[in-house]
């Protein structure tokens, strides 16, 4: 059972974007950092378990030509081996900050090139793998940035081609040291998933075809891809082969966010149907296949949920954002 905790007020409401919540846990200081996109701005704040928000900061996308200020598409903390960076994507480019958002260490402008004027240009989908940060783009390309242990000498090391439509989300997990281990998955607007092996050169391992519905959110757990789709389905695939093992008719509306508590194999799914579900993933000892059971359903009344994240590694608390809602809702198990 989960109980509603005191919510955290936001200065601005959350925008209707998928994966619109990033959480960074700082156990040493018993703090949790939250990042939420409002639209033309994003808000960062930190909070102690019970307390009110301690510090707030607003970030903006770099201005450029255009009728209105550029909209932010996502903020996400990337935990690298030696540092933590906050990455902000927008319709203008990619901004990387020190983890508290105080200093921008890198800026990458999106080059619309010879793209037709009909196409909206943006970056979306952020994840880190080893000392790389990968960011998806409107064109389907995934940009791989090599991040030094410190300082601003960030370089674009590779551009990955695998998607024909806009990238929606990227998930990674620490490589397990084996060869041929798939440790990154990218998703796009057509529902196509690409499974990669990271390294000095990223290698495309397999592609899992979509079926015309966008896949707004993906996660990766022990070689299993969890994908949430626009038709409310959650599917679990074997990452290395692309074999479908589990199909859940999970939600009545489009799924907008998934999250994982890797220590315990718990999966969160949140959708526009106002529901958040918690699932327990496991490996069948007999067949070795991924299995799943439903653990908890939480309704957030009259809220089109747009972001959800676990707030601790054991999956005993989670936070939720909703469109038009100027607060972060928190739940913890009792």
């Amino acid at each position: 059972m989960f109980r509603r905790e005191r919510s955290i007020p936001l200065r601005c409401s959350a925008a209707a974007l998928c994966n619109n919540l990033s959480v960074l846990q700082v156990p040493s200081r018993n703090l949790t950092h939250f990042g939420v996109v409002h639209g033309p701005s994003a808000q960062l704040l930190s909070a102690a378990p019970e307390g009110a928000p301690l510090a707030q900061r607003q970030l903006h996308a770099k201005e450029g030509a255009g009728v209105s200020p550029p909209l932010i598409t996502q903020v996400h903390w990337c935990v690298l081996p030696f540092r933590v960076l906050l990455v902000l994507t927008s319709h203008r480019g990619i901004q990387m900050y020190e983890s508290d958002g105080s200093v921008m260490v890198y800026w990458h402008a999106l080059d619309s090139g010879d793209v037709s004027p009909v196409q909206a240009v943006f970056a979306r989908g952020i994840a880190s793998s080893g000392h790389f940060i990968c960011v998806g783009t409107w064109s389907g390309r995934v940009l791989v940035f090599d991040i030094p242990a410190k300082g601003p000498n960030i370089v674009l090391s590779e551009e990955l081609a695998g998607h024909q439509t806009s990238v929606t989300d990227i998930a990674t997990e620490p490589a397990q040291g084996q060869d041929c281990m798939a440790d990154m998955v990218t998703a796009d607007d057509s529902g196509l998933l690409c499974v990669w092996r990271s390294g000095p050169e990223f290698k495309l391992m397999t592609q899992i075809p979509g079926f015309g519905v966008p896949c707004p959110s993906v996660q990766l757990w022990h070689g299993t891809v969890a994908a949430g789709y626009g038709d409310g389905q959650v599917r679990l695939y074997e990452a290395s082969t692309g074999t479908l093992h589990v199909q859940i008719s999970a939600h009545a509306r489009a799924i907008c966010a998934l999250d994982l508590a890797p220590e315990v194999g718990k999966l969160l799914s949140a959708a526009e149907d106002t529901f958040v579900h918690i699932w327990k993933l496991s490996r069948s000892p007999k067949s070795g296949h991924t299995e799943v059971e439903h653990c908890h359903a939480e309704c957030v009344p009259d809220t089109q949920v747009c972001g959800v994240r676990f707030c601790d590694p054991s999956g005993s608390s989670f936070a939720v954002t909703g469109y038009d809602l100027a607060e972060i809702l928190r739940f913890s198990s009792v």
């Binding site: 038709d231 409310g232 389905q233 479908l244 093992h245 589990v246 008719s249 009545a252 509306r253 299995e291």
Partner: peptide, 14 residues
């Protein structure tokens, strides 16, 4: 539910 969406409530394993 929207057209093309299944009524939620079922897990299928393969």
């Amino acid at each position: 539910v929207p057209w093309g969406t299944e009524v939620p409530g079922l897990i299928r394993m393969f």
